[in-house]
Amino acid sequence: MTMVKALNSALDNAMEKDDSIILLGEDVGIDGGVFRVTDGLLNKYGKSRVMDTPLAELGIIGFGIGMAMEGLKAIPEIQFQDFLYTGMDQIINQMAKLRYRTNGDYTLPMVLRTPYAGGVHGGPYHSQSGEVYFTHTQGLTVVTPSNPYDAKGLLLSSIELNDPVIFLEPKRSYFIKGEVPEDYYKIDLRKANVVKEGDDLTIITYGPSVPLVNNTVNKNNVNADIIDLRTLNPFDLDTILKSVKKTGKVLIVHEAPKMFGVGAELAATIAERAIDYLSAPILRVTGLDIPVPFALEDYYVPNERRIMEAVNKLLNYQ
């Protein structure tokens, strides 16, 4: 099934099991979500559990937080991550800090789902990769799946977590297909996935860039470890270090811009702990450091050519 169907199946499984789960957001009810992730759930669970809300991201997020404070498990959907910022105060100041500042008097079990990154030619306001706004906010868990199987398992694990999760769905991968069980299953949120094993270099990537990296590596017969982070914060340090110590060469690929991005944190962490194992500089292939341009988006995102240039630079490094 597609990633959209996998996510829908996860929500359905979870809601069937637990009547404290409430979905809310713009157009999630009758319309089933603009990407159809919540399709059919209104009919099955009713409007008290699948709520079409007023058009206000601040309200959708704050309302969900309140539900979670009072024992419900809210799963708000923000239609596009680009529109989420009016609710950013709620995310940073209430959602992320509530457990800490009350020393656990209140906890917030909730999952904020939102599609992010490019792939639909959405221009500056339907294509943003804003993951670092969340990864740099203490108290959040930031998860992003790369395929349908992971999407369902990671979403179900996020729903069971007793802390707030920002669940970033790569919209460019919404309609890729894969084997997905109908039944309930979970994936460890703190374990990265080694997609492919190889000895020559380590490629660390996540979310929307995983299929691109995978195809590029397979097509060009690159002998690389591909690590799909699955969870950006906290990321799986052990899996990364194990691979880096084996290969000594690191390429990081993500669609978000390079400067101050997730790649910077990964590179610094690897350098701090394993620089003696490295035989080449750590390289990054990322989105360009500009807003996403509407007509020429393809020049913005990482591609096979840029990845192979970096791979060859690392392999030939003396």
Binding site: I22, G62, F63, G66, M67, M69, G71, D89, N93
Partner: peptide
């Protein structure tokens, strides 16, 4: 900053 949370709590009261 607590007002939308308070309405969410009110919804939980209504729902339960």
């Amino acid at each position: 900053g607590h007002l939308t949370s308070a309405t969410g709590i009110a919804y939980a009261y209504q729902y339960r």
